[in-house]
Design a protein around this nucleic acid. Structure first.
Lengths: 129, 129
DNA sequence: TATTTAATTAACCAAACAGTTAATTAACCA
DNA sequence: TGGTTAATTAACTGTTTGGTTAATTAAATA
């Protein structure tokens, strides 16, 4: 499983690691700070290992501060995986829009009234109209 | 690793499976058709297993047509993972924009001329300005 | 009905993964 | 310098993953 994208997705395929990313999305933190919410569930070396997976995947960087290690999200580490998902986002949104439109025709037919659309088709995702 | 999102990312963490998704993004295909490009590298049962992983992850659906199985992408199966990446896309793009802007100030300083920006900040990704 | 085609299931194996406890490294501090 | 704090490394274990070959299912067809 050598390639970067595979390592990234493998890193994301674990709820503990996703929670660690979520913590880091609020700003930098030391290993101990990150570990704190997990230490009821798992040992310190387990935390170290999870962070190493995130580091190897390029999603997190560490810098040393005395005995402490400061961890940070590495935004550019998300680039490849974000780009990958973009392709499928388009497909997904078009499909869901079609389904939304279909539901709308059903509603119109059954009620014989026009309603203001409250569905996804109101461009929540910022794609071009 | 029970949860849906973990299963999805785990399914995406393999280049063979990503290639299968790419094939299916051009339209439906039978198991044999999907298998064809891989049969130099791996056996038919291996292909079956990969497809099963994609199915369990909710990314692919199968329907029977005589002895054949027709495979399709399942757009809504991508919803959770796409939404997850959205969060980090924002962070990533902001960071890359800042870096682009920084590079621009460097260029301006060294050349003392204004240039039209050719960087990412030209809203390629359709997010609101 | 016997054969071929399409795909899956079964049984097995090696490597990777996620966790453990114990030991070690390395910096700070009293 | 001896102890404490922060984190990692080592060694080990059970489970999951990705592959194999051989056997099986099930539908189409000659």
């Amino acid at each position: 499983m050598a390639d970067q994208l595979s390592q990234t997705f493998a890193a994301l395929a674990d709820p503990t690691r996703r929670e660690m990313l979520s913590i880091l999305s609020h700003g930098q933190a030391t290993v101990s700070e990150i570990a704190e919410p997990f230490l009821k569930r798992m040992s310190m070396p387990a935390v170290t290992k999870h962070l190493k997976v995130l580091e190897r995947a390029g999603l997190v960087t560490k810098t040393q501060d005395a005995q402490r290690r400061l961890c940070n999200l590495n935004p550019s580490g998300f680039q490849e995986s974000v780009q990958f998902m973009e392709q499928y986002r388009q497909m997904m949104e078009e499909s869901l829009d079609r389904f939304g439109a279909y539901l709308e025709t059903l509603t119109k037919q059954s009620t014989k009234t026009k309603r203001k659309s409250k569905t996804r088709s109101s461009n929540k995702h910022g794609r071009k109209k």
